[in-house]
Design a protein around this nucleic acid. Structure first.
Length: 662
RNA sequence: GCCCAUGUGGCUCAGGGGUAGAGCACACCCUUGGUAAGGGUGAGGUCGUGAGUUCGAGUCUCACCAUGGGCUCCA
């Protein structure tokens, strides 16, 4: 018999007289390794294979153990089976469907006659722990399709039967069955652990409704989200991160910092309080400065239009579901859900020459979109909002340069805001779209070429484009590594057609411009929500609603404090003075919780010397310095939109401690 | 829109058929205190809305509204 050679990562070779499984290779190396084995990585394939996989001659194998990061996928997959087993042991009438691994965990969709409650999750956790203790071996069997169908049919597992029939239609003759313990098995292609005991830590997380195969028309199932880790420590760390994310929830921060509110009389429509409005306006000012720098002109366009406009633009046909309509004086109107049709009208208002292009017009117009009740969320998904929206009308040969200019502007803005971590997606034509395929080819090609010439890496998102054109989506990755879609650039050959837009070329002939839709922050509302979570409310001073909180040690210094407050305000610095007869420590605590960047504590010493004592929000206290010096330095920090305090001298040791104590 | 949960003073929450409770915030009084909560007194609520059951409904039932977690969809 010819020998089968398996190559290990250190290039050593193991010889077998048959095609060994991953586990057999591990056993040939050592019992400890074999005990911990949960799968293998073969050749250069990133996907973990089952430890029961038979390996061909010449395979390069890296064994995945419970200690390798790759094992998480296997462990979570098995944990999904574990959870399904636990649920069926608790409630035998519950039917199983599918249970995939997702980022940070897994879920399992159940078809259950009764709804799961939070108490049920506790029961499931207990049952899972109980099953883990049994440490049942996991065995793979290959069943002929007919046997699988008849078995699951007898069990009443109709969703499993549906899945097997699909596999059969694809030409499969056998299907994989994983058996754990005596009585429980599930259809699965693997990979799975050797023994259930290899799953070190699991925890159910939440209950949700979900449709079979993600389709609204299918039966609704009950999804249980859960996670599993290689060690109890990793699980605890993960749960701690979840807590951290909860603390940073922008809805909570918005309320705690007095930034914005909601009311049931205007669902999903934020009320920005004075403090929130400061952030809103500061961001707008910042973007406006960039507009001047990058050759944009700002415009103001109407809020409500005759519906005919949206017939012409195609929005009525493609976007009606999300639009607000009203009927007045026997005419149909709609609140604009986007600025672009209005900008096309404005483009037409004056005859354009090739010399006028590129024509870049920006609009902070308020938009209204009817979002379905279940999808709205804090500031990140609202029904009325304002984008840092602009449209660029240009010639096809200017496209590359405009895309380049956009990416540069975006990078500058994001860097200033401390958001250097972002990724680019290129979204291509969706199924429901307008315009000829040649136009789509052209538009998609232009975007891709621009990215390549800028040396920017990107990922293609097939079918995710807008109905009028392909787009670049900029995903910002926040401090907790969560991606958010903010910026976008969409190439549109269709709207200029719909509005018959034209310009007179050098050749004195009529040409059609290309239209770019673009935004950098996305919407101010969503941006503020995302940014609050990114910074956990610790805004750079130029954005902070209150920049300086003045506080006196006793009433004796009140006049001095009032004088300083006025001086700061004259300089355009947002200062507040707490005149209540509370103790200094009390006022500091309040300013700290409000995340105010600077506190000026004023006692007799300061008053006599005309100085201020500066306390940074991290807790660091500086030596008293003349008021003028303080104001001068602070102005620089604000005007230059610095991310770090100009007064910060060393690493801020207090910040962490304070953050965790409140 | 769909599934599930929640809705009690400005905020965070207790109370689960017999006519509303706490802490914080707010007002006033005492305290004038030097870097994260000094003490006292007081005011504040048609218990999301509307029907129903009941002698009696925050409390039970139903409908609606809003919010939250998901699904689907998106800036």
């Amino acid at each position: 018999m010819s020998s089968v050679r398996i190559v290990l990562p250190d290039n050593s070779v193991k010889n077998f007289d048959h095609e060994p499984t991953v586990l057999e290779v591990a056993q040939s190396i050592g019992p400890r390794l074999a005990n911990d084995t949960v799968g293998g990585l073969i050749d250069d394939n990133p996907e973990v294979v089952d430890l029961r996989t038979k390996l061909k001659d010449g395979t390069r194998l890296k064994i995945v153990t419970t200690k390798s990061p790759e094992s998480l996928e296997v462990i979570r997959h098995s944990a999904a089976h574990l959870m399904a087993q636990a649920v069926q042991e608790l409630w035998p009438d519950v039917k199983v469907t599918i249970g995939p691994v997702i980022e940070d965990g897994f879920y399992y969709d159940f078809d259950s006659p009764r709804s799961f409650s939070p108490e049920d999750l506790e029961k499931i956790d207990k049952k899972m722990a109980e099953i883990l203790k049994r440490d049942d071996p996991v065995v793979r069997e290959d069943w002929p399709v007919e046997k699988a169908i008849s078995t699951f049919e007898k069990m009443g597992e109709r969703f499993k039967v549906e899945l097997i029939r699909e596999l059969e239609a694809k030409g499969e003759k056998t299907v994989g069955i994983y058996r754990q313990g005596e009585n429980w098995f599930d259809l699965c292609r693997g990979p799975h652990v050797q023994r259930m005991g290899q799953i070190a830590a699991t925890k159910t997380l939440s209950i949700a409704g979900a449709y079979w195969r993600g389709n609204e028309k299918n039966p609704q199932l009950q999804r249980i989200y859960a996670t599993a880790f290689n060690s109890k420590k990793d699980l605890e760390e993960y749960l701690k991160n979840l807590e951290e994310a909860k603390k940073r929830d922008h809805r909570k921060l918005g309320k705690d910092l007095g930034l914005f509110y909601f009311h049931q009389y205007a669902p999903a429509s934020p009320f920005f309080a004075p403090k929130g409005t400061v952030i809103y306006n500061q961001l707008q000012n910042f973007i406006r400065e960039k507009y001047i720098e990058y050759g944009y002109e700002e415009v103001i366009t109407p809020q409500m239009f005759d519906v005919d406009l949206f017939h012409q633009s195609g929005h009525y046909e493609n976007y009606r579901e999300n639009m607000y309509f009203s009927h007045v004086d026997d005419r149909d109107f709609s609140l604009k859900p986007m600025n672009c049709p209005a900008h096309c009208l404005l483009y037409q208002a004056e005859r354009k020459s090739y010399r006028d292009l590129p024509w870049r017009i920006a609009d902070f117009g308020r938009l209204h979109r009817y979002e379905r009740s279940g999808v709205v969320h804090g500031l990140t998904r609202v029904r009325t909002f304002c984008q840092d929206d602009a449209h660029i009308f240009c010639r096809v040969d200017q496209l590359q340069q405009e895309i380049g200019g956009f990416m540069k502007m975006l990078d500058e803005i994001y860097k200033t805001l401390g958001m250097s971590n972002y990724v680019i997606y290129l979204s291509t034509r969706p199924a429901q779209r307008m315009g000829a395929d040649e136009l789509w080819d052209k538009a998609e090609g232009a975007l891709e070429q621009a990215l390549k010439s800028l040396n920017l890496s990107y990922t293609i998102n097939p079918g995710d484009g807008a109905f009028y054109g392909p787009k670049l989506d900029i995903m910002f990755v926040d401090a907790l590594k969560r991606p958010w879609q903010l910026g976008t650039l969409q190439v549109d050959f269709n709207l200029p057609n719909a509005f018959q837009l034209g310009y007179v070329g050098e050749d004195n002939k009529e040409h059609r411009p290309v239209m770019l839709h673009r935004a950098i922050l996305g919407s101010l509302e969503r941006f503020i929500g995302v940014y609050l979570e990114h910074t956990s409310g610790h805004l750079p001073t130029w954005l902070a609603p209150v920049q300086v909180a003045l506080m006196t040690v006793t009433d004796r210094q009140l006049d001095y404090a009032r004088d300083l407050k006025n001086k700061l305000r004259e300089l355009g610095i947002r200062a507040s003075l707490d005149e209540r007869g509370e103790k200094l420590g009390y006022k500091i605590r309040e300013a700290q919780l409000q995340k105010i960047p600077y506190m000026l504590t004023l006692g007799d010493k300061e008053m006599q010397n005309q100085t201020v004592s500066v306390r940074l929000k991290g807790g660091q206290v500086l030596d008293a310095l003349p008021f003028a010096t303080f104001a001068e330095k602070l102005l620089i920090e604000i005007q230059e939109r610095r991310l770090e305090s100009v007064f910060q001298t060393g690493p801020n040791l207090n910040q962490e401690a304070h953050n965790s104590s409140v």
